[in-house]
């Protein structure tokens, strides 16, 4: 575990809300080795999403460096970050964020528009991704014709379709019932174990965190591991 996939060094993130300074993350260090399935817990407003956004190049730290797969994100331009996101990370959101006018298949194909694959290759790859999440038979359905759990599966297929090493999931089961949540978490586990995805999952559900290989807590802008209760 000497070579970490992602490294945060002395990362601070301060939001300026009018005259008020909100110190969300404070000189935080984190190493995420390749193949890790890391759960990040913490109360609402503690900075979990902020941390995920920094890892995914959606946000920049006020101080410190974020390095993922050897690339230092803080030194990239916005355009470079866009291109980097297209190939290196997959996002899974609490509310799925599928495009309502596109079928499951077309939603999954979206990230492939940023690659050099032609239309046929895009369709094939999207079909494989839908197969992995067990939704081949729903390819032609619109999001509103799917259940919440199915929508999240489509979103996961979209996150893995361009084969990124890192999956960033922000409360992926926050909107699902226990049973469905466990199915989704099981799927993430499979992606981690069998497909070699490195996963960082934000959750405030302790049961969800148990699917991960380790759990860190955000507390006062820092990360700490707590002994299991």
């Amino acid at each position: 575990m000497s070579e970490a996939l992602a490294e945060l060094r002395g990362v601070s993130r301060v939001y300026q809300k009018g005259k008020e300074r909100v110190d969300v993350l404070h000189e935080l260090d984190l190493d995420i080795p390749g193949g890790d399935f890391l759960a990040i817990m913490g109360p609402s407003g503690s900075g979990k999403t902020t941390l995920l956004n920094l890892l995914g190049g959606l946000d920049r730290p006020t101080n410190g460096t974020v390095t993922v797969g050897g690339a230092e994100l803080s030194s990239m331009s916005n355009n470079q970050l866009s291109n980097w996101r297209a190939t290196h990370v997959g996002f899974v959101f609490q509310f799925y964020n599928l495009l309502p006018v596109l079928t499951a298949q077309k939603n999954v194909e979206l990230p492939l528009l940023l690659t050099n694959f032609n239309a046929r290759e895009r369709a094939e790859r999207a079909a494989i991704a839908l197969d992995i999440v067990g939704l081949s038979d729903r390819a032609r359905h619109l999001p509103r014709e799917l259940s919440g759990g199915q929508e999240q599966r489509v979103a996961i297929a979209r996150a893995i379709v361009s084969d990124p090493t890192l999956l960033l999931c922000d409360e992926p089961t926050g909107d699902l019932d226990r049973g469905t949540a466990d199915e989704i978490l099981g799927l993430l586990q499979i992606l981690n174990r069998e497909h070699g995805k490195t996963i960082v999952m934000v959750t405030h559900d302790a049961q969800a965190a148990e699917f991960a290989t380790r759990t860190l807590h955000v507390d006062k802008g820092q990360l700490e591991s707590r002994a299991a209760a």
Binding site: N79, L110, L114
Partner: peptide
């Protein structure tokens, strides 16, 4: 807004 932000997160450029 939501759609644009999602696309941008997926890597679509401005």
């Amino acid at each position: 807004g939501k759609e644009i932000a999602t696309l941008r997160a997926l890597g679509f450029g401005p």
